[in-house]
Write a protein that binds this DNA or RNA. Structure first.
Lengths: 236, 236
DNA sequence: TGTACATCAGTGAACGCGCGTTCACTGATGTAC
DNA sequence: TGTACATCAGTGAACGCGCGTTCACTGATGTAC
C-alpha cells in the first residue's frame, strides 16, 4: 500500500478513468489489506513451509505492506493463524453444501464424489493446506481450533449420512466414527494431491484410484458394521 | 559438556570410584553428544513445536552444548532432521517385529493389537511425533524421507498380512491400499494419544475405543473386498 | 611403562542479519455543521 | 456545496535480541616409538 497520492496517480485518473480502487471505502481497503496478509501467509505455506515457521515481517513483505501495518489487523501471529483456521472451516462447510446439492447419484457415487472433491481441493488448495497440515503440527492453540472445525465437519457429515438413510442400521455414534475415518482419509488425500508435482497424470491417477478404493473399503465396512453391544466385556 | 578436568572432578574420582563416564572412548562420547542433540530436538518438539520452527541454538542449549559443537555432528538442521526420520523408521520397524513376535491371537485381535500399539506409542512418544506430524508439515526434504519410511512400513505390513493368510483373496496391491489406510489411522491415533492431557482416563478410553472401531471397520471392509476388474470402464 | 606428538570434540568471542515491537508521523477518508 | 476537524490505515526510524556461521583456541584422548 503506497501513499494515496501516488496510488491515485497510478490509478490513471489523468487518463479520465475512475478505477475500481477509487470507489471503495476506507473500511473496504482495510479488509482488502487484511485479506492480502492472510493470502501472503497461505502463499508462503503453499511453498512448503509450516505456519509456525513464518515470520511476521516475511508475511508483510509478501503482502506488500510495512511490518507495523500488521498490527492494524491482528494482535499477533496467533490471531492470524486462527483467522486462517476460520477460513478453512468456511471452505469445509462449503464443500458439504456443494456435496448436498449434488444429491445422491445412484451409480459410481464414490468415484464421482472423489472427482468433485479433487476439483474442490485444487480450487482451494491453500485452505486445505491449513486444515490437512496444521491440524497436526500447528501451535497447540491452532491445533485445538482446527480440531474443533474438523469435528464440526464430521458431525455435519454424519448427520447428512443419517438423513440419506443409505445405511440405516447405523447409530449416530457409529456414523461419527465412520465419518472420522473418511475425513482423515480425505485430508490425507488432499495433502497427497497438493504435494503432486504438476504434469504427472499417471501418478495423479494412481493417487485418485487409491483414494477411491480406500473410501470404497470404508463403506463396504460400514455396510457390514454391527453395532457393538453397549457394554464391553469387563476384561477389556 | 564441560571441560574434562571438571567433569573428572564431578565424576567423583576423589571418592575412589571410577564412573561409567570414565570408561568410554572419545568416539563413544561423540556419539553420546550426537544423541543428546537429537534428544534435545525431540524434547522441544514434544512441547508442541514443529521441527521447522526450532533453532540450532535452541537445540544446543537444550543439549547443554555450545552452538558451534553442533557442526561436529551435523552439517545443518536438515541433516539433523533426516537423522530423526531415520530414528522413526527404526522405531516403526521394531514395532512390526514386536507385532510378529506376538503372533496371531485368535480372539480380540484388534483390541489387543491396539493395546500393544498404545503402549508402544507411549514408550516412544518422541519418534511418533516425527512420523505422525512432520510427515505432513516438515520441509519437503523431510517429508519425502518420512514418506519413504512409511511406504516401507506399509509394504512390510502388507507382506506380513499376506503371510498370515487371514484374508487370502486379496492381491498384494489391495493389501498395500488397506495397510495404507491402517497406517494413516494408526498415525492419526498416535497423534491423538500424544495430545491427550494426562489424567483423563475417560477421554483416553474413548479414544482407544474409537481407534479399535475404526480398525474393525477397515478389516470388515477388507473381508468384503472384491478385487476391482483390472481395467476400469473407459468412462472414468 | 614412559615420552613426545597428533587428533579432534567441544569452547568462546565475534560478525552481520532478520526478527518482533515501540513510537511518533502522515495524509487520505470520513463526519459535523 | 464548502469548510474545519477527527479518524485511522499505513509509514519509517529505531530498539534490543537471538539467530547461523566463522574462526582461532584448548586440552583430554589416542597413537607411535
Amino acid at each position: 500500500m503506497k501513499k494515496s497520492k501516488s496510488r491515485r496517480d497510478r490509478a490513471g485518473v489523468e487518463a479520465g478513468k475512475v478505477t475500481y480502487e477509487e470507489l471503495v471505502s476506507r473500511q473496504d481497503r482495510k479488509l482488502r489489506t487484511r485479506d492480502s496478509l492472510m493470502d501472503a501467509a497461505l502463499t508462503l505455506m503453499s511453498q512448503g513451509r509450516s505456519f509456525g515457521s513464518l515470520s511476521l515481517r516475511e508475511i508483510t513483505r509478501e503482502a506488500g505492506v510495512v511490518p507495523t501495518a500488521f498490527y492494524r489487523h491482528f494482535r499477533d501471529m496467533d490471531e492470524l493463524g486462527l483467522a486462517l483456521v476460520e477460513g478453512s472451516g468456511l471452505i469445509l462447510r462449503r464443500l458439504l453444501r456443494e456435496a448436498r446439492k449434488h444429491g445422491v447419484p445412484s451409480t459410481e457415487i464414490i468415484r464421482s464424489s472423489v472427482t468433485i472433491y479433487k476439483k474442490y481441493v485444487e480450487e482451494n488448495p491453500r485452505y486445505f493446506l491449513v486444515a490437512a497440515r496444521e491440524r497436526l503440527t500447528g501451535s497447540p492453540l491452532m491445533r485445538y481450533a482446527i480440531r474443533t472445525e474438523v469435528n464440526h465437519f464430521i458431525n455435519e457429515m454424519a448427520q447428512d449420512l443419517r438423513d440419506l438413510r443409505l445405511i440405516p442400521q447405523l447409530s449416530m455414534e457409529s456414523l461419527r466414527m465412520i465419518c472420522g475415518l473418511v475425513v482423515i482419509t480425505m485430508l490425507n488425500a488432499a495433502s497427497d494431491i497438493l504435494d503432486l508435482p504438476p504434469g504427472q497424470p499417471q501418478a495423479e491417477q494412481e493417487l485418485v484410484d487409491n483414494f477411491v478404493r480406500q473410501l470404497t473399503l470404508i463403506f463396504l465396512g460400514a455396510g457390514a458394521w454391527r453395532e457393538p453391544s453397549p457394554r464391553p466385556a469387563e476384561t477389556s
